[in-house]
């Protein structure tokens, strides 16, 4: 799956707000790409755009989304609907509200399976049972006819994952799948997701603001800030040797067990609102290493070691030298 120069706009009466501005990334089969950033950085919108469920008036103003080489962002609604669930699955933040309270689990599973696969009722039910087994619901045969309110939060998120996997999609967009869960259950769900995707070769776009989840599950990570990608690269490299000052600040704000730190780093200020994104690099008002050019010229993603970083610190030949400390 590739996203090319995606730009998402919200036309309002007072002018157009650009929520996601010119971002590009790829996810290869079986790979888990983590997407981190503060609230409002555009992570969830990017996910919604990929499955074609941007809420109006939000729209894709520019760029394209390719799935296995085929462009999908400009498909008519009905064709895109067939791709949703069949080729791209989605998991949302809150498992407590993701399931229709009035229908049993079996009905919701069978309905989804039969939407995408030519199975009769009995076959669909068998498949539903197998899926519940696979996501680790104990005594699935007994619980399949239960209603969502009879499951705990963690169990419901397993059901949600089973629903997303119904038709073996090639890509899963997981939008903060663990945020609403207990910490003890978060780890279970993440390892379940990771295991299932490695088994089925499914690619995952894991949207979260939890660096711990990223470090645990992702292969690569994209750090988003104000609708742009600040840094993208292999997860170990981004965590250990963060290049963009924003990523650096993010990593410094995570407490580590065993490291004695007097005070956690803090990034002063807040992410600008969409109407007030400054010229040049959007991070410049908060950046410790801000330079004159940062306020004028927008930095482009450039390759630094194995990562790609959007920061003027790495411009030109002496970029390494200036960043070196």
């Amino acid at each position: 799956m590739s996203v090319r120069n995606l730009r998402i706009e919200f036309p309002t009466r007072r002018g157009t707000l650009v929520a996601v501005d010119d971002i590009s990334f790829d996810i290869s089969p079986g790979e888990i790409l983590g997407v981190v950033g503060e609230s409002g950085a555009g992570k969830s919108l990017t996910g919604a755009a990929i499955i074609g469920l941007l809420e109006p008036p939000g729209r894709i103003a520019q760029g394209e989304i390719l799935l296995e080489g085929r462009r999908i962002d400009n498909l008519p609604y009905e064709q895109l609907r067939r791709i949703r669930g069949r080729q791209i699955g989605a998991i949302f933040q809150d498992p407590l509200t993701s399931l229709n309270p009035l229908y049993s689990i079996s009905r919701q599973l069978v309905e989804t399976i039969q939407t995408h696969l030519p199975l009769n009722d009995r076959e669909a039910r068998t498949r539903a049972l197998a899926l519940l087994d696979e996501v680790g619901i104990p005594s699935a045969g007994e619980r399949i006819d239960h209603y969502p309110h009879q499951f705990s939060g963690g169990m419901r998120q397993r059901v949600v994952i089973a629903l997303a996997l119904c038709a073996e999609p090639r890509l899963i967009i997981a939008d903060e799948p663990t945020t609403a869960l207990d910490v003890s259950i978060q780890a279970q769900i993440i390892s379940l997701l990771k295991g299932l995707c490695h088994e089925h070769g499914t690619a995952v776009m894991l949207v979260t603001h939890d660096m711990g989840v990223i470090a645990e599950a992702a292969d690569r990570v994209a750090v988003m800030y104000s609708g742009r990608i600040a840094e993208i690269g292999p997860v170990q490299e981004v965590i250990r040797t963060a290049k963009h000052p924003y990523t650096h600040g993010l990593m410094g704000s995570i407490p580590l067990i065993g490291h004695h730190v007097k005070k956690l780093t803090q990034i002063d200020g807040a992410m600008p609102r969409l109407q007030e994104i400054p010229a040049g690099c959007p991070f410049n008002p908060r950046c410790e290493k801000v330079m004159d050019c940062c306020r004028v010229e927008r930095p482009n993603l450039q390759t630094v070691q194995k990562s790609r970083v959007a920061c003027h610190l790495f411009d030109g030949a002496d970029g390494e030298a200036r960043a070196g400390e």
Binding site: I83, R84, R86, E111, T115, C166
Partner: peptide, 12 residues
């Protein structure tokens, strides 16, 4: 959310 999720599953 459950309506969004139902749409995301590709239901008609």
């Amino acid at each position: 959310d459950y309506i969004k999720f139902a749409r995301a599953r590709g239901l008609s």
